[in-house]
Every structure is written in C-alpha cells, then in structure tokens.
Design a protein around this nucleic acid. Structure first.
Lengths: 172, 172
DNA sequence: ATGAATGCAAAGGTTTTGCACCCCC
DNA sequence: GGGGGTGCAAAACCTTTGCATTCAT
C-alpha cells in the first residue's frame, strides 16, 4: 500500500514533488496520450486540432489533476488566445477518448479530472484538515474486478474515496 | 452482494420502488436524522431552525438522493417561502453534521447528495446505457476500514463507484 | 466542398454574497 | 442583547449555445 500527500485542491504538497518526478516522464506521457487521442479522433472521423494538443500539453505540464476552471487558467497562461468554450467543448471529448477521467470530488463537491494514463491511485481525504492522500490497494482493485464480472459488467474504471479524520488535529 | 437499479439521475427505477418501501420508515428516519442534526447544532453552538427541519423533511420524503437544484425545487413545492440562499447555506451544514454525504457523480460529472443514514450501498454505472446499479460488498467494506486504520485515519465514510459496461447493449 | 473546430459574446444555470430583518438562546 | 438564521436581490461563477469564421481532410 502506498501513500502520498496532496493539498486540498489536488496540487501536490511540497514533499511530494519528488514523487511527482517519479511519474512517467512528461514528454513520454504527452506522446502516449496524444497517440491515444489521435486514435480516437481517427476512429470517430473527427479532425485533428492544434488546440486539443495545446490542452493535452497543458494538462501534462501544469495540471494532471484539476478542475475545469483551473485548467482554463493554466491554458490561458500558456495560450491566451484559446477560447474557453473550446476547452469546455473538448473536455467531454477527452473523457470519451479515455485520456481523461473524472477524479474524486473534494469534500465540498468539486469535480476533478485526472489523466487516465497517470499512475492509478485512490484517495483518502481528511474531513478535519482537508488534506488529500493517495493510496493504492491491490486487494480492493482485485475484488472490484470480481464484483463487476459477477454482475456481468466489464469494468472500465472506478473511483474510490475514503472520507476520514487523520491523526493531526489541525482543523481547517 | 445485493444489487438494485436506479435510473441515471438516481431516481429509483419502477421495479425498485418496492425495495424503497423496505427502507427505514420515513418518520423514523426523519426523527433519527433530526436528532443527529440537533446534536451537531448543540455541539457547535448553533441555533435550531425551523427551516432546517423543513429541509430534512423534504429530503426524507421527496429526495433521498438528489442534486442541489432538485432539492430546491422539491423544497419550494412544499415550502414556497424558503429562500434558495438558505438552502445553499444549509447544505454544507448538513454535510458537516454527517446527515448528508456526497453521493456518486453520474458520468456527466453532476454531484449528488444522499442521506448518510439511509442504507449503505455503492454504485456501478454503465458507461453505455448510463444505468446506475447499487451493490454492497462486505469484503471491500471491511478492507477499507483496515486501510484507513493502517494509515492512522479514523474512517467516517467512503464512496466507491465502478464505471463499467453492462451486458445490455442499449447505447444511450 | 464538407463537416469539424474555433473564438466571441450572449445566454443559461447554479451558487455565493451583501444587507436588512428576524429569531433563538 | 448578540450571534445565528433568513429572504431577497444582486453578484459571481461556471458552463453551454448561437453564429460567423477558419481549418482539416
């Protein structure tokens, strides 16, 4: 079981930055998800688009775990000329293509997106101090595949969030 | 492992209505969550409020599983004079008090609330036909308690959603 | 040439906030 | 009396949509 810490809004806490660099190298990751997207685009007879690549790039370099408005902000810093409507029109495409998935909501109901190709992890959030930790447990991973199979479903994805209180009593 | 079906928006499918009547009797449930809320209110030195009781009542009788705007609509049908700001101001209180919890998001990212005191269940949603099934699995329930304990967290709650495709190939 | 993708601005919907008033303790 | 709690209206915020234009194939 592994564990590492994120700040409430999903940004990595300072001590996790090292862990972040352990993630797939950004260039490699970007290339992989670009391929995935291209494949989806081809299959659906859509057109390739430069803006979508800018969005992918921004996600990989700035916000692997984000809410739509956050990504919009990052995107505008990198590419001020991209319209927000375009981002909002593309998010569902990225989800459909499997590049993105919805991540956990924080304790205030905000929906996050995250890269599917990034390391898989689940989340445990502290209801007192609102810190978000990541963990990964093979037993649960395995069990839910059995469950889905038992219900005649083909498991595609899942989200597991534990709400709890941690031992550090720093409220808010 | 139990399973029953909800419509995409979380409303019970017709054949589940029977199951719904198996739930805790509404009056009893309302009383219980009212007590829970009262306790929270006392502990936090808040004031009791008639409007909050109206909200609880509406939740129990109209919408045990809802998005904020849905609840607002129900509330206004029962109590047209309650301001929407009041509802939005009270939702976080109800979550903090433990009466409500965030439910699963549907595949379009909408956040739902649900009664904590209602039967516990997790959700499996079909990414093709968007049906939502409920299930409950003791092994996973137990395992995540161990996990939380192992991380020195005190487990309060959790959410587990499986995204999958079901065997019925009825897209949309 | 055709359908997809885009930017802009406007619209739509949801949630929050300021303020005056009221109510609970 | 003081600090919640409330309703109203306005504001803020997020997301979607219409439309004219540009782009990819």
């Amino acid at each position: 079981m592994t564990q590492r810490q994120l700040l409430p809004c999903g940004r990595p806490a300072p001590e996790v930055d090292k862990a972040k660099s352990n993630k797939k190298d950004a260039r490699e990751l970007l290339q992989k998800i670009t391929e995935n997207l291209d494949q989806f685009v081809a299959q659906k007879n859509l057109n390739r688009s430069e803006v979508r690549n800018k969005i992918l790039e921004t996600i990989v370099y700035e916000a692997r775990h984000f809410r739509a408005p956050d990504l919009l902000e990052h995107l505008h810093r990198r590419y001020p000329d991209v319209g927000k409507a375009t981002l909002y029109r593309n998010l569902p495409v990225l989800v459909e293509s499997g590049v993105l998935q919805e991540g956990p909501t924080d304790s205030d109901g905000q929906v996050y997106y995250e890269l599917t190709e990034d390391e898989h992890h689940d989340h445990i959030v502290c209801m007192d101090c609102h810190k978000i930790f990541e963990y990964q447990d093979d037993l649960i991973e395995k069990r839910q595949e059995e469950l889905a199979a038992g219900m005649n479903f083909h498991l595609k994805n899942h989200r597991h969030v534990i709400y709890a209180t941690c031992q550090y009593k720093n409220k808010n």
